[in-house]
Design a protein around this nucleic acid. Sequence first.
DNA 1: AACATAAAAGACAACGTTGTTAAAAATAAA
DNA 2: TTTATTTTTAACAACGTTGTCTTTTATGTT
Lengths: 330, 330
Amino acid sequence: MVTIKQVASHAGVSFKTVSRVVNNDPTVKSANREKVLQSIQALGYRPNRAASLTRRKKSGIFGFIADDLLKVPYTFDLIRGAQQVAWENNKELMVLNVNEDRYTAEKAAQNLIEHRVEGIIYAAMYHHEVVLPDILQECPTILANCFCKNPRFPSIVPDEIQAAETVTLSLIDAGYKKIAFMNLNELIIAAQDRKKGVINAFNRRGVSLENLHIEPVFYGPAGQEVSCSREVTAKIVHEFKPDAIICGQDPIAVEAYFVLQSMGLQVGKDIGIASFDDWDTIPTLLQPALSTMALPHFEMGAWALEYLLNGREDKVHEKLPFTLVKRGSY
Amino acid sequence: MVTIKQVASHAGVSFKTVSRVVNNDPTVKSANREKVLQSIQALGYRPNRAASLTRRKKSGIFGFIADDLLKVPYTFDLIRGAQQVAWENNKELMVLNVNEDRYTAEKAAQNLIEHRVEGIIYAAMYHHEVVLPDILQECPTILANCFCKNPRFPSIVPDEIQAAETVTLSLIDAGYKKIAFMNLNELIIAAQDRKKGVINAFNRRGVSLENLHIEPVFYGPAGQEVSCSREVTAKIVHEFKPDAIICGQDPIAVEAYFVLQSMGLQVGKDIGIASFDDWDTIPTLLQPALSTMALPHFEMGAWALEYLLNGREDKVHEKLPFTLVKRGSY
DNA sequence: AACATAAAAGACAACGTTGTTAAAAATAAA
DNA sequence: TTTATTTTTAACAACGTTGTCTTTTATGTT
């Protein structure tokens, strides 16, 4: 490949002048700058990042380690958010998808550190606790959409309580009186916190908890969960007779819609439905479109990169709010 | 950070010996190797990739440019496939998500070339024609899930004709007599090719085309398409009276299921449904689960990286087959 | 015109590695 | 034991940049 020295001799200046032009150093006479620019163009010169990094102290690269689990569409927004902030600051993001057996987080972190990244975001597909390899202590690291035992790692997670409280208040204020909540697997933090949020809302509005029914629809250890959304929907409608149902995630709502339709109930009219996630394409695929609490994935990604970018060292454990996306389902 | 020289003086050898140990050079006495290894451990040495790249000819890095559109869950498999092959060969993949206005493919390619990547995969969310920036000609580049006018760029795309033919043959052979195909927007290549495939199947089995009805359910220019899946489903069932429907993509099937249920028709019993994509979570969310032609995203990603890895220069335009995932919908 | 000063360009070391070649040490052969 | 040969280590250049310092050139002042 063409080097700075070849450009220099082609332009008839010293190679240091070429370096100055490439780095937009203002102390170059415009006549020379012009000559150099033309030579760069003519020879097709491309700076060699590796070489420049040997002299610069900062690499300008940030790492993003993604739990392979990253299968759910909207989680990609975590990457987007981080990348957006990286672009705005002329930084680069190296995304590595990891996977327990094939390519471990340990290996990924090692690669990133060898590239001298300025910081690492470790992101998980769903909000849960993770165990990090020790090597991550060698580099500023922030957890996104997850947390770990070691308090020295800062983290940014969605505010599950706020989300549940917000959507429940919205339902109550819209006039719904009897609400059922088909929760996620109670083993996961999101389910536990959302339960609190729903109850908070009832208490804040002074509504008796007799008008609330909470029941999980996923059981079993993570990864091999069994769903019983349809059965629970049918049972709840028959027995508890709610006028609104909150679903723990958008796919549950899809199943609920089917069951309700088969029972002759019209969503949005005979019964209100709300949900969590804003799982791309699903909410608008339904009729009426699904009102759902959108996870702040993009915002978490952006927040995490911003944290690293600012060279912060404080061990924050931040929570970001969900956003209510109101559509026609209640 | 710790350098090779610091390790050397700690271990009491020359820095070249440390370099040899790091690179697994067998010509190091095991006693010395041991000493060096311990020093590396003790000092927490991490090789500096940038520095090593100044001397090595190959960077060991491949670039992956993803059309931002990458919003659909399964498309992530393109990246997974490429990454898998990269891992197996001890290479790295730099994934850059691009976006018409914010971060162009041009800019992404420039960055990758500055990192001296050995090759670039340019991947699109859906199978369509793309326009590539000229800079990509400076580096071995292959298109995945897309193609472009310039024949000098090799490409790997899904075999739409094969897919449509396969699923149609499967339906005919399962005894279905009247088949409706709710196609994608006819402006896109997938819709055009699948139409051919469906017709091929009818011809191969000698079934009259009177038993086939093809109609698109998306209209308008890409990006601002209007869907009329529900209307078309209802109309087709009333007028054409098919015993099986093929949906152009899984979300269309979701809508069809709703319409059919509302008409009192049971999928898998009264009417067969098949689809394209294997759009994660959707097929198994439905009841009965949806039989669908899975796009070979993972395989395309892997194939593309393999192509680059082998230093191939031939201008192939390869097609990879879909896989029929048979579930209960027909 | 002479001088002082500021602006621009150049020379050269340095970055942390690997490649090459020479030297030293270990081993085998005589 | 000496010599030849092989194995192992070391010395030093090289990679393509940027940082620092010096020199040259241009500009302004008297």
